[in-house]
Design a protein around this nucleic acid. Structure first.
Lengths: 213, 213
DNA sequence: TTCACTTAGTGTACAAAGTACAATATTAAT
DNA sequence: ATTAATATTGTACTTTGTACACTAAGTGAA
């Protein structure tokens, strides 16, 4: 599951299947592990083959092993997720023909997905909501330079609720993992906001015992 | 991985293997998933076969999928963990002969285990330490009725550090998930402490969005 | 019955983190 | 100069976490 953030909305990367079963349905990107690759490697390879995306760090999430998940046989799925920035609107182009196309879809109002992928997706979304509350994982979703308002909008999208501006800023700046830049937003027709960068080194010190990154 | 708590020590359930490879080595209990069972069911069945323990709720933890984990072929392991009370010292008796015996071992000073089980174990221990800090999962390790001092000793064992008595009590009682009983400890040669019970219903309300139980 | 011993049980002052709330500052466009 | 839009800032209060030491209660031995 690849999450992205664009125009104030949290989005998930889906594919349109080009194979039976569930041909033409929407699904989470996924395929089979090969004999000579680890499951982490398989996740990276399959993401590339289905979407053209490379070099994205994915975190293992949960393994789904009910007996009748796949209509044609026993399949156990190890699910991963990642959060990425959608800046520059990278082209999404399947390299194999298992998928017809890949595209971003808002996490709200997701249609029913192939197999039990809706179940998998909902479990992941819940986890992200829990996680973002105590761990600033959201920076991966933003462009490299961002304003505090953009960051807040992202949090509001993920948590699906309004946050207080002053308190949000106080908290984020207190983490000490934001670097204030000497630059301002450009191209807006109102007061331009300061730009910030996410400081990965400080983040690593703070959360070295945690999972992400 | 089944964790237990006894005599102030956190312990882990190990088996002595009775099959090649790693015959006679110590290992975490585990075996193969059958075609017609879910991975959750397999975990429960295998635990029973190797130790005689039944009806223990296990939480899925992580899936290990490196290529060369098993010397004789490709094996992907879905690891689970559980915490149980050791009251009454249930007998541990393998039902199959894959294991010679099953026994409890203190988590400190664990010998090297078969396969990559030491890696798996260490990752689980870390996770438990993190988790117990923000979620009172430790009650499963105690007898049904316990004193606050016993509870504190358990926390100290898991976290491997001393805690302040007054602050610990304040915090635990403030959670509102302990029921004070009209009973006292018996058989001690000093002032007997009040006994408490863990209130699962209140716990469920408080942590309904979390994983455990 | 008293005394010694062992653990149970308790409170206060301070620091840190979270929350509720609204006015002024800056810039662009007209 | 004015308007319109968003950026930026502080304070009072509540809640939570932390450091710290004495008294209470029960047992067992003399």
């Amino acid at each position: 599951m690849i999450f992205g953030f664009d125009k104030g909305e949290l989005k998930i990367l889906l594919i349109e299947r080009n194979e039976e079963p569930y041909k033409d349905w929407l699904a989470l990107p996924g395929y089979f592990v090969e004999q000579q690759e680890s499951i982490d490697e398989a996740a990276a390879r399959i993401l590339y083959e289905l979407t053209g995306l490379r070099g994205i760090f994915m975190e293992q999430f949960h393994t789904f092993g009910e007996v009748k998940r796949h209509p044609q046989g026993r399949v156990i799925t190890v699910a991963y997720f990642a959060m990425i920035r959608l800046s520059g609107a990278k082209e999404l182009k399947p390299v194999t023909n298992y998928a017809k196309k890949a595209f971003w879809h808002p996490v709200e109002s997701l249609p029913e997905l192939a197999f039990d992928h809706s179940v998998i997706f909902n479990k992941a979304l819940q986890k992200i909501k829990r996680k973002i509350a105590y761990q600033p994982i959201a920076f991966e979703l933003l462009p490299e330079k961002f304003t505090l308002t953009q960051l807040q909008t992202l949090y509001e999208a993920v948590l699906n609720k309004k946050l207080d501006k002053r308190n949000f800023r106080k908290k984020m700046l207190n983490y000490g993992i934001l670097k204030e830049l000497d630059e301002k937003q450009k191209g807006v027709s109102y007061r331009a906001a300061k730009l910030y960068k996410f400081d990965k080194r400080k983040y690593a010190k703070l959360f070295k015992n945690e999972l992400s990154f």
